[in-house]
């Protein structure tokens, strides 16, 4: 919420970000008022806000990599891209799976504050997410049963997306 308030000021049409863009000769962008840009602004702020948590997860993942394997790959003459592809990524497969699933769940459940503060679903309903829709229907429109149906849909979407991610990543990250 506080992050949203800060970025509200930063991203306003006559705000600092547009001033910087104007200084290098780019036309000001209406970050939160343009219906095709607003959702990307909010997602960008959310990625920035959760960057630290992702960094901690990946730092702990890097710490569990076996230094002997990396040394062996280096001695065998693996280039850096080869090491990343064949040693580091398979070694981090569980970490990457965890990061994907938790980031997706975080995006679906904890962007309410940002939406509420930054765009309130607007402009023209273009930044609605299911959780915000649920809150509007339940609290503003007094439609609890409809909100309940939306919650059920959101639950199923999260379930399907999460399981699909685990399945895809399990197949994609394994070495051979």
């Amino acid at each position: 919420m506080i992050i949203g308030a800060i970025f509200n000021m930063l991203l306003s049409v006559d705000g600092p970000l547009n001033a910087v863009l104007g200084a290098v000769g780019i036309d000001p962008v209406d970050w939160l008022g343009d219906s095709s840009v607003a959702i990307f602004s909010v997602v960008g702020v959310h990625i920035w806000a959760t960057f630290g948590m992702g960094l901690v997860v990946f730092l702990s993942g890097f710490a569990t990599l076996d230094a002997a394997l990396l040394d062996a790959a280096r001695v065998d003459g693996a280039s850096t891209p080869q090491m990343i592809r064949h040693v580091i990524v398979p070694g981090l497969s569980r970490t990457i799976q965890f990061a994907f699933v938790t980031t997706m769940i975080g995006m679906l459940t904890s962007m309410f504050g940002l939406l509420f503060v930054m765009t309130s679903g607007g402009p023209g309903g273009s930044t609605y997410l299911p959780e915000y829709y649920i809150w509007i229907q339940q609290g503003q429109m007094n439609r609890p049963a409809l909100a309940s149906a939306a919650s059920t849909v959101l639950f199923l979407v999260m379930l399907v997306v999460g399981l699909a991610q685990i399945a895809i990543l399990r197949r994609g990250l394994k070495e051979e």
Binding site: F51, G54, A99, Y128, P130, A150
Partner: peptide, 23 residues
Amino acid sequence: FRTALHNVGLLVLLLPVAVPSPA
């Protein structure tokens, strides 16, 4: 609500950007 679901699809597509950025 269809817009909301559409935005969820957008989030899924943006996920490969969001996850590797810290790594």
